[in-house]
Design a protein around this nucleic acid. Structure first.
Lengths: 192, 192
DNA sequence: GACACCATACCAACCAGTCAGTATATTTCA
DNA sequence: TGAAATATACTGACTGGTTGGTATGGTGTC
């Protein structure tokens, strides 16, 4: 395992925030879950919010790695790259580690009005993510404007985040795949 | 205004939960916002969770009233009824009162694993909502199976809830209308 | 001996919820 | 009618426990 305390704490933050929300997660409970003392927590993070930011960064780079591991980028045509990326998203909540939610979405919805550090980070991640998808879509659609591609990208992110929310609320995880597949059909009707 | 204290408290719960989340909202802050004493709070509600449930019920019936006020049901064909309902959803976050989010989604995402009362209520509301939309879609599509209609209904709810989340996180409210309009185009391509 | 790393004890502020008691309607019944 | 009984609405001080964060001192390693 060879995990250091900072990594263990970040992992605990991630799991607890998804389970109880940010405000519902105390520093003590994070330390307990990580099997680490409070002194260690405040050695690595200057505040609870700082720890959440760190966990969010970790989660986002893990997601990026998973996306790259799906090798969607190696497909030969823009159309195949987009479709492959959508397949990756459809399955992303079914992975073995099965994170029961999206840390980005959970944090953004809960604390975007109260914790400026987190909200600014989340906002940037969403913008950056949408840009990447918009490029994928723009390439696949060819003629469409950047504005339209961005709008479609935001619709995709909305469908995914909303489906994760709905899956969590109703205890019905397959909803995520289903929602992404609907988006795929929508975009395919525009590709032809 | 002639509002009684219970109504004032429910309104305060609603606003504060959207702003700070459920756990981030203290009973004291609710009372302060409502201009009501703590004793009054616990006279009307047996717990904070109970108050959240009451506020959620109030929000859901307000939404239902708004939907009915849009007169989507009076349209003559199933197709028009569905399209009119989608237009209602597209504009729902632009109302004058402009609730900065959806209480159902916010509560569901944050406390679905910790507060059984709220989660059970939210889960039922989502199921009930999806059933209603599925009927609307089933009627408009004619031949399609109930399963497919339900899947489309859940996709619509996902798109809406996700768009609200994204709008909040990035400070870009028009995203909601845009996402619903994409769904409308998707469903229209299936109607013809 | 300096520095990263971590443990324990501690703090003031805050938390949800309780309680004893007050004020004012509404109902009961002699 | 009118007094007693009851129910409803409300107040704000109080409680035991939790909160995020600090202070201080110890340990291993270069």
């Amino acid at each position: 395992m060879a995990e250091n305390n900072q990594f263990k704490l970040a992992k605990a933050v991630h799991e607890l925030v998804l389970e109880r929300g940010y405000s519902g997660t105390s520093v003590d409970s994070i330390c307990e879950k990580a099997g680490v003392s409070k002194g260690s927590f405040f050695h690595h993070f200057k505040s609870k919010e700082d720890a959440a930011c760190f966990a969010l960064d970790a989660w986002m780079s893990a997601m990026k790695e998973m996306a790259l591991a799906s090798e969607y980028e190696t497909k030969s045509t823009p159309r195949e790259r987009l479709l492959s990326y959508l397949d990756f998203l459809a399955g992303v909540m079914e992975s073995p580690e099965a994170p029961k939610g999206c840390l980005l979405g959970s944090l953004a919805l809960e604390v975007s009005q109260t914790h400026h550090q987190v909200q600014s980070k989340a906002s940037n991640y969403f913008r950056f993510w949408a840009e990447g998808i918009a490029n994928l879509i723009g390439d696949a659609l060819g003629a469409d404007s950047l504005e339209e591609s961005t709008s479609l990208a935001n619709h995709l992110i909305s469908s995914l985040e909303g489906a994760i929310l709905l899956a969590k609320a109703t205890g019905n995880p397959p909803l995520v795949r289903s929602s992404i597949l609907h988006f795929k059909q929508y975009i395919e009707s525009r590709l032809v």
